[in-house]
Design a protein around this nucleic acid. Structure first.
Length: 427
RNA sequence: GCGGCUAUAGUUCAGUGGCAGAACGCCGCUCUGUGGCAGCGGAUGUCGUGGGUUCGAAACCCACUAGCCGCCCCA
């Protein structure tokens, strides 16, 4: 299917390493895993992500569920295009706010957007994300939370071995700041917008913030002359942002202020951020993105519950790591070695098959990785097969079975030795 | 959703109108309890799918599907 992929066993170890590292890092910061449905009511995304966003207006996989009884109405359902809305729905539904505790939740799972695929962009893609949310009394809107999340991401990327990441940081202000800034943008764009490209002319009308995001080269001069959001932050937003930056400075997390970083989901308020990389992703250079969403819970009919979260594009993280590994292998002239199993047990003759499987059983129960051949194979074939998958071959012929003294040959050293059956289990 | 490029063996690719190819990999033999090297031999296949042009199409044309690159946007 378009935009979907199969991940074969040569790929999945890296995926598992990434996910295990993420789980371990998140646990150190007190996050617990949440698993929410892969589909939700369409309404949730329309209200949470925003009716006018690209995601909701043209990228969702949506269908009408059948009404199963005359009294039941057909419901519009949608494969989740992101997970924050679902997590906040679960927060509301399970009344997690009533605990009074700050909730730190993370998730790993597939997301679905009906876009044209290209490198680093798939219709089913995976996100590793986390949300910090709770009633205000839990400190959920503290700048400490913003900085902690950003510092955690820096630690995670470092631990994964992602090199040359770059943190872009901005504050888009609270709801009131945004109203004033939008008005200022419209006013500034009015006399100059006719000089801009068609896309930007449209955005100037529908969503002036998006003009800031434009990469149209001819329009850059105009865009650079537009009012900066930083000048329109109210005292509260400005103080919050200053504290976030101070905490990042204290932790030694490098960042670049990017006054043009506006994000495409309607729920973002105040802190917004993106981590980008230059390796492996082509023009889709955003590795992860996120921000604060102080009003989302209320938008979804829940209690006031400020929050901040992010989503890592796992596919993009993997592409970056693979590109780095290829670059390293090319630089050191070394081929990428596939991990080998401990033993390949080769029965010599079909009469030894049962004994070979039994030997493998014992070795595996000791925790060793073992492959078993077939007595019908010629010895040459057994060696060839063994050398591909294992570090050593155990020959099991009539003699070995009757005496219990095995013939073991290491492929690394080329040394062949007779080994007591019992001693093999010690290794 | 828009534009460009691409699709031939397991893989990477050559093949611009006249017998479907190379390298690597795979299998067999030389070699029935010792692999890696070498020699010899073998199988690779809906030439993405469907239609059209032509005496003849892998090649030219159209449509579709999928991938890649870019735009939009985002992870």
């Amino acid at each position: 299917m378009r935009g979907t992929r199969d991940l074969l066993p040569d790929q999945t170890p890296l995926w598992n390493r990434v996910e295990a590292t993420a789980r371990a890092v998140f646990a150190r910061y007190g996050f617990g895993e949440i698993r929410t449905p892969i589909f939700e009511a369409t309404e949730l995304f329309a209200r949470g992500v925003g009716e006018e966003t690209d995601i909701v207006s043209k990228e969702m996989f949506t269908w009408e569920d059948r009404a199963r009884a005359a009294s039941e109405k057909a419901q519009s359902l949608t494969l989740r295009p992101e997970s924050t809305a679902g997590v906040v729905r679960a927060y509301i539904e399970h009344k997690l706010g009533e605990t009074g505790q700050l909730q730190k939740l993370y998730y790993i799972g597939p997301q679905f957007r009906r876009e044209r695929p290209q490198r680093g962009r798939y219709r089913q893609f995976w996100q590793i994300g986390a949300e910090v949310i709770g009633p205000q009394t839990s400190g959920s809107d503290s700048p400490v939370r913003d900085a902690e999340v950003l510092e955690m991401l820096a630690s995670l990327l470092d631990e994964l071995g992602i090199r040359d990441w770059r943190l872009e940081l901005n504050s888009v202000g609270n709801a009131e700041d945004r109203v004033r800034y939008n008005a200022a943008l419209r006013e500034a764009l009015e006399p100059v917008k006719h000089q801009m490209c068609a896309d930007n002319q449209r955005r100037a009308e529908t969503n002036p913030l998006r003009v800031l995001d434009s990469k149209d080269e001819a329009d850059q001069e105009i865009i650079n002359g537009l009012p900066k959001i930083a000048d329109y932050l109210g005292a509260e937003s400005a103080a919050h942002f200053a504290q976030v930056r101070a905490a990042l400075d204290a932790c030694g997390v490098p960042y670049h202020l990017n006054p043009r970083l506006v994000r495409g989901l309607d729920y973002y308020t105040r802190t917004t951020f993106e981590f980008t990389v230059t390796t492996g992703l082509g023009t889709q250079n955003a590795l992860l993105g996120g921000g604060r969403y102080d009003g989302l819970s209320e938008m979804l009919g829940g209690p006031k519950a400020p929050g901040i979260g992010f989503a890592i594009g796992e596919d993009r993280l993997i592409l970056t790591l693979q590109a780095q590994m290829e670059a390293d292998a090319a630089a050191s002239d070394g081929a990428l070695e596939e991990p080998k199993m401990d033993y390949y047990v080769a029965p010599l003759g079909v009469e030894q098959n049962a004994a070979a499987l039994r030997l493998a059983q014992e070795l595996r129960r000791k925790g060793m990785t073992v492959e078993v051949g077939d007595g019908g194979f010629r010895v040459k074939k057994s060696f060839e097969a063994a050398e591909k998958v294992a570090r050593a071959i155990v020959l099991l012929g009539e003699d070995e079975v009757s005496t219990g003294v095995l013939t073991v040959k290491s492929f690394a050293t080329g040394v062949q030795a007779k080994v007591e059956r019992a001693r093999l289990f010690e290794a």
